[in-house]
Write a protein that binds this DNA or RNA. Structure first.
Lengths: 194, 194
DNA sequence: TCCAGAACGGCACGTGCCGTGCCGAAAGGA
DNA sequence: TCCTTTCGGCACGGCACGTGCCGTTCTGGA
């Protein structure tokens, strides 16, 4: 099992090569043939592990980020949310994660299997962590008990992804700070209709 | 010019065929060859008009929707915004526009030319109309003068697109209503820091 | 120690679509 | 009438797909 031409070690080499090559030539021009050639691997070795180019990239990116978006809990919900969303901005706004993640989300738009995998293994866990942190804050009386916390999550993430995917303007801390401040003016009030 | 095998008439036939075929087999399997064959056209005739499959679909979709998202102005900003976002939900949530638009946005993630065209010809005009309507309301004293209206636009559109592209759950009027209500609790207050 | 089976790299194949030439026909304008 | 533009049809080389097959190398159990 210590042999780098077998098993899990081979898997890691292929994923690393995918990230390298993807960063160099972009996802659109990335082909499984090219990854195989660069990694010194047969195409079967890749197809045996992943059903598609998108699935390969998803695994590669997940192996890269390794829960770097874990949630802090200092007791200050605003500060913690801000820390976390800044980390997301830094991750999504810079290579190697940013451009490749953008392409992956794009690919997921016409590959339902990939979309499901992306949701299950990245989006949903991240969202759940945000909601969990918000629930803690609500239970500690820092937020209005009436506010829908999954809606808060959407209002926080939505504009970020909108800028990331649609307008494609650079992501900045300043931008998400504005979203965050607007969100908190709504969440701190005791608005019964939400 | 009345001959349907020339000029603008030919263009419309090709766009209509693109929508038909795209709806039948999905964007992923859609090929320019297939469109040409179905439309009884040569491939040159298509390549002369559009640089890529994405550009062809963009034109086709724009020819379909024909400013159906024009903004109402009844004097009630909340009602008008609601009417408009409901129209967007109906458009994006149903065939033929919805699935093809989703694929188009996906394609734009690894085609900068297409992303720019999509922004210039659809996203930006729509956003500008929303902001313009919000400005009118603000000038009439219906909104806090301190609130950043382009931020309001992002908070309204962001969660919608997040659900459309990322979680891929069905779009409902109820969902955008919740976003809208949350947004208005922030905009109606006089919060000086925004 | 040996051996069966799994995993591997390399190669070749058929397929589908790409984008681009070339041809002759048809349409429209001067 | 003639010339230019647009068109459909066809063929081409190129590329990456996904899948076979072969011979080799590694692994784990007998």
């Amino acid at each position: 099992m210590t042999n780098p031409s077998r098993g899990a070690a081979r898997t890691e080499v292929i994923m690393r090569t995918t990230l390298e090559l993807g960063q160099e030539i972009g996802y659109a021009k990335l082909s499984i043939e090219a990854v195989a050639a660069r990694a010194g691997a047969g195409k079967h070795t890749i197809y045996r592990r992943w059903p598609s180019k998108g699935a390969l990239l998803l695994d590669s990116l997940l192996s890269l980020h390794k829960s770097s978006l874990d949630y802090p809990d200092t007791g200050d919900i605003f500060a913690d949310l801000r820390t976390q969303i800044h980390a997301a901005v830094d991750l999504m706004g810079n290579p190697p994660f940013g451009p490749l993640y953008q392409a992956l989300v794009g690919e997921a738009q016409h590959d339902p299997q990939l979309a499901a995998a992306l949701n299950e293994r990245f989006i949903t866990p991240q969202a759940a962590m945000t909601v969990a942190r918000l629930e803690t804050a609500r239970d500690q009386g820092q937020l209005s008990p009436a506010f829908d916390l999954s809606l808060a999550m959407a209002i926080l993430s939505g504009p970020l992804y909108f800028q990331f995917l649609i307008t494609q303007e650079p992501l900045t801390h300043e931008y998400v700070d504005r979203v965050l401040r607007a969100l908190f003016t709504g969440m701190e009030k005791s608005s019964s209709s939400l």
